[in-house]
């Protein structure tokens, strides 16, 4: 049972108030009629399934009925941030890796 911070309500709520809506940041191609069958198929059917950081869309169905995005670690289930549609995540797999390597080099420097 996740504890999810709704960025619209500005509160933590229990998971049962929400519905997961799959991967976030899937943009519908701007000009569908001039999108190739393959690209349209990718948009419709292909999703990431990462082990680790994932950006997901959630819906606060029993609360404010607003959509928002969640950055969640699919291994630990830790939620690192939630943010509104149209916003970009501040925590990404890349930013995490950069942070980890920065820490490693700091430790190296300390030695």
């Amino acid at each position: 049972m996740l504890h999810i911070y709704c960025p619209h309500c500005d509160e933590y709520r229990e998971e049962e108030e929400f519905r997961p809506k799959g991967e976030a940041h899937i943009a519908r191609p701007a000009d569908p009629e001039n999108t190739s069958d393959e690209d349209w198929g990718n948009y419709l059917f292909f999703r990431k399934n990462p082990r680790g950081l994932h950006h997901e869309q959630w819906f606060h169905s029993a609360g404010c009925r607003k959509f928002f995005n969640v950055t969640r670690d699919t291994v630990s289930y830790e939620i690192l941030e939630t943010y509104k549609p149209g916003q970009q995540p501040t925590v990404t797999a890349e930013s995490r890796q950069a942070q980890a390597s920065a820490q490693a080099s700091n430790q190296g420097a300390a030695k």
Binding site: E16, E17, A62, G63
Partner: peptide, 10 residues
């Protein structure tokens, strides 16, 4: 005031 789940409804 809030809105939330109540039993299996809202």
């Amino acid at each position: 005031g809030i809105s939330t789940t109540l039993a299996k409804s809202t």
